[in-house]
Nucleic acid binder design. Structure first.
Lengths: 338, 338
DNA sequence: TCGTTTACCGCAATCGATTGTGTAAACCAC
DNA sequence: GTGGTTTACACAATCGATTGCGGTAAACGA
């Protein structure tokens, strides 16, 4: 807040010698609309005065009147997660283009925190919400839908709610096909959290494809856990707690893959000779680490953009629908060259 | 925005049979203050009605009147950067405790974007700003200071402006002492961007310490560049473009170190035998990657918390001062066991 | 008994922008 | 010249909360 109080429409009106109503209409409407309300000279004078005085409309006053805030709330599991940070970049980009601002906050995938933080955003009168932390069974989303809170899901999907996601089942399928082609038959999975559609569907895509090839992936080859390096490490430790070891690991997230790398290193297993490793999301690090990582590229940024655009369309009264974006397999050293 | 219009003080006032002024005072003040304005029965009735109707004050109306928004703007170079995302978590945590909301946005270290996005936040009438993307020579910050915009810097510092940072010079010194103790004499540095105090001071800390040990670090051993894996890779490629190779690399950021790892891998150099590698920030991955990374732990979360608390103190009229937090060296495999 | 606190609370202005309605003046057609 | 339509504005209500200024009644002190 600058020292001198910001200029108001009233000040412009006095300076130009018209009413604030005229100022408002001129400053708000586009050129053609402005002409309907004031003579060209008046329009020019108002614009000039606004320009000269460094006028910036008070959004609180406008929101109070219009009952819109041009702010949307964004909830993500955690911005520390590169994937969600990238999704958010897309959200932000689309928002900026339409003069929308965002409140972002972490829910840490904790239901109470999620409720609280969503509520404070609603209390702030956001126009809508984008959730990056949807759960497969999500009572809260159902509740919000019942209250007619407009929202769109990104990254994870849930039930019938509008969502913009990557085709995770297909992604898992691509990984399976690749691993099968590489001759891997005994695959293990770092499946992520059981409440997140991302990991679940990637896992199912792989398992389904293996099943079609006549190979059952047993339950003990699937470990749930976090989508970060720690989660990957813990999961990998379970998966490699007893022999025979699997000959491939599908980490449904790159960072989990990095965590698994550490475990494989400690076990003295080499990648890809002993174990092939596949990640998900094609994080920049995937290419950089000591062993470059095969992974699935997902359009994270685009997901964010579309989520915001979809929400704004919905707020504008248009009918919108969910979208499944295409994943792309990126083959690197961690699965080839045995 | 829920379907039915939210309840207002007027509705409560009518239901209870008092004026909105009384409702306002009762709902805003703490218990003792409330008693000064209304009888216990009235207070109870108002509270009950508010509770029952699910009353949530309209922040736009309050802001319009009070000229405060209880929102602060946060600008970071990029949330994709784990470090800044963590700083932001600290900011958010401190903000939530004091019922403050935040607008966060990426500036991508681009000056024009920074101006634009800061301006839109000021237009939104934020009460203050936290900058995570300060530059060592920063005209814009000087300009904002002149306009009396209240702000605090986090992570990077600049000139006389209030900042909460890690003692990066000391961090660089710790790294230097460790490398010297390990017998490394020919060190190279991935220094980060020349406009970011973080990398510059970490580099200087190392260079100073080597100089005190009688070892000059020549200019061609210092590469500037981004704080991400790509930046690290590019920098490392320069540093290892011709022999003799350095026997140690100090990456002033963990992710740059990971990028460098890829280059060392491609060059067939082993860590730490041929080259010792040190990162900075103690990212979770540092421990997980195939070769665990020696690094410097910095209190990222705490930096964020303190930045927000300092800003709020400043907004409350208290006098505040810059703080330098302590770094801690974490020794792992990438520098030991030659 | 009368003036003075004290407790409780209302009135109304205010913040800045938006918007429905009112209205002079100008312009047009016939 | 009369009636009707534009043009170009102004007026004033409105959004919801905050807050300075009073105001009434009961209690209290002298």
């Amino acid at each position: 807040m600058a020292a001198r109080r910001p200029m108001t429409q009233r000040m412009i009106a006095e300076r130009v010698g018209v009413s604030v109503a005229t100022v408002s209409r001129v400053l708000r409407q586009d050129e053609s609309e402005a002409q309907r309300w004031a003579s060209p000279e008046t329009v020019a004078a108002i614009r000039l005065a606004a320009q000269a005085g460094g006028y910036h409309p008070n959004p609180h006053a406008a929101s109070l009147r219009t009952a819109r805030s041009d702010v949307v709330g964004v909830l993500v599991p955690r911005l520390q997660d590169f994937v969600l940070a990238t999704v958010y970049e897309g959200i932000e980009e689309a928002a900026a283009e339409r003069s929308i601002s965002t409140f972002v906050t972490n829910s840490f995938d904790r239901p109470e925190l999620r409720r609280i933080r969503t509520q404070t955003m609603l209390d702030r009168r956001v126009d809508g919400m984008i959730f990056g932390d949807a759960r497969m069974e999500d009572d809260y989303l159902a509740e919000l839908a019942r209250l007619d809170v407009p929202f769109v899901l990104a990254s994870r999907r849930s039930g019938p709610h509008i969502s913009i996601t990557c085709d995770d089942h297909l992604g898992g399928r691509l990984v399976a096909q690749h691993l099968l082609a590489q001759g891997r038959r005994d695959v293990a999975v770092l499946a992520g959290q059981p409440y997140a559609s991302t990991g679940v569907e990637r896992t199912r895509g792989l398992v389904d494809t293996f099943a079609e090839a006549g190979i059952e992936v047993p339950a003990h080859r699937i470990a749930t856990g976090g989508f970060d390096a720690d989660g990957g490490r813990e999961g990998a430790e379970k998966l490699f707690s007893e022999r025979p070891y699997p000959d491939a690991v599908f980490a449904t997230n790159d960072f989990a893959a990095f965590g698994a790398m550490g475990v494989l290193r400690d076990k003295g297993l080499s990648i890809p000779d002993d174990v092939a490793l596949v990640g998900y999301n094609d994080t920049p690090l995937a290419e950089s680490v000591t062993i470059s990582l095969t992974t699935v590229r997902s359009p994270m940024h685009q997901m964010g953009r579309l989520a915001m655009e979809t929400l704004l369309d919905r707020l504008a009264g248009k009918s919108v629908k969910s979208q499944l974006l295409a994943p792309e397999l990126i083959i690197r050293g961690s699965t080839t060259g045995r």
